[in-house]
Each structure stands twice: as C-alpha cells, then as structure tokens.
Write a protein that binds this DNA or RNA. Structure first.
Lengths: 242, 242
DNA sequence: CCAAAAGTGTTATCGATACACCCATGT
DNA sequence: ACATGGGTGTATCGATAACACTTTTGG
C-alpha cells in the first residue's frame, strides 16, 4: 500500500441539505461564497458544507458547519449517505474555491451527507462577511447546476426524506407553523410525495397519528370559511426513528 | 481553521458486514489478523475493512477490501451508514494493530459501512498469510467484544437488513441455495426478524412475490414427507431497491 | 401404526381507496 | 346570491392475522 501524501489523501467533509416549506413550495437552503477579492463573475451555489475538524464527530461537524454558514442552531440533522467518488471535486472552479476557503491543497473529498427539515420561519443569517444563504425552490435541483456533485447529493437527500415522510409522517410537522390547518399539511404532503391525496382520506389518516391534536381555534382573516387549526404535541407523538 | 497534520487528520476506511445463513442461524463474517511476528495472546476479531486508496471510490474500495481479506468476488454491497466518532480507534490494541497493518500513524478513522447478504456456500479464503476469516453466530455481536466500534457497526448493519428484509423480502433469496423449501425460507425470515410466522400465511405471502417459482421437484433423502422446492427467478423479480 | 414434518382453506379485522354533497364566510 | 375553500361519511377492496386438520414418508 502506498504511503499517504497529505495532499492527495481524501479530506472528510459534511454537507447539510436543509429543506423548508413556505406554504406553497418545498425549498432547499443553498449558499454562495462571497469571493470579495475578485469580481470574476458568478460563483456557483452550493450546499452548506465544510471539512471536519481533526477531532470532531461527524454529527457535531454537521451541526457546527450548518451553524457557521447559516446561523441555524438546534437543528436535528440525520445522516443519509456518504459520497466518495474521487472525481466529485475535479471541476477547476470547485477546486479553486476549496483551496481559497480552506487554505488547503485538497485532492479529493469524502463527504458525509446530512439532511434536515425545518420551519422556513427559522431565523437564518442570510448575509455574512463570507457567505450568502438563500432558499431555492427544489426544482432548481433539476434545472441549474450546483457546485461539486451537490445536485446528486441534494436529490438523494430529497429521496431520503420522501421515504421518511411516507412512513413517519410526523416528520412533516417540523416544516409547518406550530398551529396549522389540515389543508396546509395535505399540501405539504402532496408536494413532497408528488401525490394528490383525497381530502377525506387524508384527514382520517392524520387524525390517527399519535400526538396530532385538533384545536378549538380557527384561522383568522380569511375571506371564506375559517379552517380549523391543529397542533402536534411532540411528547405524545411517535419516537423519532432513532 | 487549523492546518491539517497528516498524522491527525482522519483516514477514510470501509468496513464490510457480510451476513450468511447456514440453515439454522444467521452468521456474520469476521476476520482475525495473524500477528505472526509475536505470540502476544488473542488478537481481537474485526469486520473486514481497510483504508481506501488515494484515488478510489467508496464502493470500489469496499469491493476490493472484501476481496482482499476474504477472497469473495462479485458481492453486492450496500452502503448503510458512516461512523466518525474520534474515539472509535482509541483502544491501544486497535491503534497498534492499525499501525502494524497499514504502516501508517493513524490518529483517527472515518469509516463508511457496507453490508451484504450472501449464500454461506460461497467460496471464501478462510486462511491466508495474514488473515483468518470465520463465520460467527450473530449473537456474538452481543456477547463478545470486537475491535474498534465494530459491535455497533455490525448491529446497525443488522438493523439495516432487517428493515430491508421486511419490505423487500426478495433480498432473502440471496442467502439460500438456488432451490430451497418454503420452510427454509420461513426459518430464515423468522430468524432475521425475530418473528414466528404462521405457516399458511407465510406461504400465501411468498407465493405472490414476483419471481418466486414453485418447482415440481422435491427434496430428496429426507426421513419424512419430502418438501417441495422453490426457486427465485431474478429476472422476474422486483428491481433492487436502488 | 407411529413419529415427524409438509401441506392446505376459511373467516375476521384493519387499513387504504373511491367517491359527492352541504357548510361557513366575505363580497 | 354567489364564489371560495372547508368539512364530513359510507361502501368496497385487498392485505394481514388467526386458526386446525389431513397427508406423506420412513422406521
């Protein structure tokens, strides 16, 4: 076996795919690095991610990196897949960006992917010295090209949460305001799974989810019959998948 | 961010958790390194695994490593989880073993876990110059301690395949001889999922699995009513989960 | 004829699906 | 009164679960 050259041997990084819902569309959080020392055109969009520290657990790194790049705190991140194709950082633009931001000569990256679902209202630091964060419609993942293999990474994350939503529907409640209507929930469900649920059947199914509580409150200021509000009581809900 | 020291920065490795079935119990393939230059007592059992090459994809590495350590070829390996706790290689015995076998000073390891289900009849090179491979009952995973965090890794792999078997039962057919009886299949299913399936209901369910063919052959040389044989026709079966 | 395991059918329950009409509100 | 979306019930189907007796074979 070859002795490892520090330059060539893979660095380990984490990428965080964060999904949010604005009431109409599912969004993904992407960042742009502000390359302030040059004006050389458009810098590509990327998933928030960075290499891990020398002595840091993967989960810890994911939480830290997401916080550093977006200001988000207390986000529950799930590991979903790791990516290690040696060519995934071959694009010269990506290579250059890596070297500038890490001050390291990086031959290749092995990246552990994490995913989170959050309320789009969570406070995000969209502008910092070095980065700009923004929500993008998930259809962007098919229409424009992200840095590295981040299209692939994000699409796998999407697939992962689709499965999760299908079998552990309570994960959706993370994406909605504390009090929400059944229609909001159904819209969200259908947008993520690309289905068209029947109103009545959906209602029936949701009402037997542990922890979903029907309130005696109704939405206000709507120009039609006010819809009832619901709330998810985490304590009574199913335990997270582990 | 600190400049990375080649010694401390994580090396990337793959571990392969290979399960087989001997007709009675589910087994896991473990190896022992033959430390031929010293007689210092028992060397711990481990999962087959090793660090990846400088320019190698993760899947490729998993396939290569499994082949190098056990002689197994053409094994379908699925990535299930990555492990990166900085303390997972802190045990001095593990550290020493790592340094001897890799000739590298390794501070820590980030390991990508792969899992496979194979027929226990597959030809394995159990003894080589440097390693000894053996099938162990999976209950070993709870009773004796493996190197690193390999107990945890293997148990997560087991959990992964339990889920897979539950929803994509055809994965079981990889573990049985080409022609098998319904009882063999049911035993296997029940052992993996720790259930006690009803004979008739199980039969009914299996007969509607695409690609499972009832043959007009029967097992021979049994001292009781000869059971019918079945075969799985991969072409007609469900596509792998992907 | 006995022991050992194979093989087979019916009923009850649960969850998922399909489907259409009246209700409350604001203009 | 009308337009907009909210809210509700029943019937069918398919999958799962519970359950017990007869058949084949070798000794």
């Amino acid at each position: 076996m070859n002795r490892v050259q520090s330059v060539l041997y893979p660095y380990v990084s984490v990428d965080c795919v964060v999904f949010g819902f604005d009431g109409e569309r599912l969004k993904v959080l992407l960042i742009e690095r502000n390359m302030n020392n040059s004006s050389e055109g458009l810098s590509d969009k990327k998933l928030p991610g960075s290499i891990i520290y020398e002595n840091e657990d993967l989960n810890t790194a994911a939480v830290r990196v997401l916080h550093e790049l977006t200001g988000l705190k207390n986000i529950y991140l799930s590991q979903f897949h790791s990516f290690g194709n040696p060519e995934r950082s071959n694009n010269p633009r990506d290579k250059q960006w890596l070297e500038r931001t890490t001050k390291l000569k990086i031959g290749r990256l092995v990246t552990v992917g994490y995913v989170a679902l959050i309320k789009i209202s969570r406070k995000i630091i969209f502008e910092s010295e070095s980065t700009t964060a923004r929500w993008y419609d998930i259809k962007s993942l098919n229409t424009f090209q992200l840095a590295f293999d981040h299209n692939k990474v994000a699409l796998e994350a999407l697939n992962y949460i689709r499965n999760k939503v299908k079998y552990e529907t309570y994960t959706l409640f993370e994406l909605l305001p504390q009090k929400f209507t059944m229609t909001q929930l159904r819209n969200l469900y259908d947008i993520i799974l690309e289905t068209k649920s029947d109103v009545r059947n959906f209602q029936k199914k949701m009402l037997q989810v542990e922890g979903l509580e029907q309130l005696d409150e109704f939405q206000k200021d709507v120009p039609y019959r006010a819809p009832r509000l619901y709330r998810y009581n985490k304590r009574k809900g199913a335990a997270p998948s582990k």
